[in-house]
């Protein structure tokens, strides 16, 4: 059994975006704050902090989850991936490229969470329907786009990846 007192810290060791990370964390530190702070993964956006908005969605051991609803201390030994794993401006992931082409973002606050969700979902569901993507996006709040271009972009990307 492992134990950490409320005032104490436990050293955790995990992989974040392909890099080994070792850090001492207090039990109450949320994964979202751990990623943005010590790990400097600023692509993890923190919106509502109670699991509703989806902006902090990351991948933990292959599953898309809310980083604000996990404790950092729970991820000892895990592999955590943020939006950084998708691509860079010069070599965009098909999802990112389609988001740009379809104007699927405006302010961009919700985008990293949606990209991680979509990438993970498409691995399991390579040929989604429009309805599937709408349901997927029910787990994300976007206040700019009205969602339609996001659905279009994800469907485009799914088709590109099937080719």
């Amino acid at each position: 059994m492992s134990y950490c007192s409320k005032d104490g810290r436990t050293t955790i060791s995990l992989e974040v975006d392909g890099k080994r990370v070792k850090a001492a964390v207090s039990p109450r530190l949320l994964l979202s704050d751990f990623l943005r702070g010590p790990c400097a993964a600023k692509g993890v956006h923190v919106g509502c902090e109670h699991g509703v908005c989806g902006a902090c969605t990351v991948r933990v051991d292959g599953q898309a989850v809310r980083a604000c609803l996990m404790l950092a201390i729970q991820t000892d030994g895990s592999r955590v991936e943020t939006v950084k794993v998708l691509g860079i401006a010069d070599a965009m992931h098909p999802l990112q490229e389609r988001f740009q082409a379809r104007h699927a973002l405006q302010c961009g606050f919700c985008t990293p969470g949606i990209l991680i969700s979509a990438q993970t979902y498409l691995r399991e569901h390579p040929a989604p329907t429009r309805r599937d993507i709408e349901e997927l996006l029910s787990g994300h709040l976007c206040r700019c786009t009205g969602y339609t271009p996001i659905v279009d972009a994800i469907l485009d990307a799914a088709e590109l990846e099937r080719r």
């Binding site: 059994m1 492992s2 950490c4 007192s5 409320k6």
Partner: peptide, 17 residues
């Protein structure tokens, strides 16, 4: 919007829990 401090246990068996 952060949890209040708590003591954290991570048991490895149901009996411990």
């Amino acid at each position: 919007m952060k949890p209040a401090p708590f003591d954290y246990y991570c048991p490895r068996s149901l009996d411990e829990a």
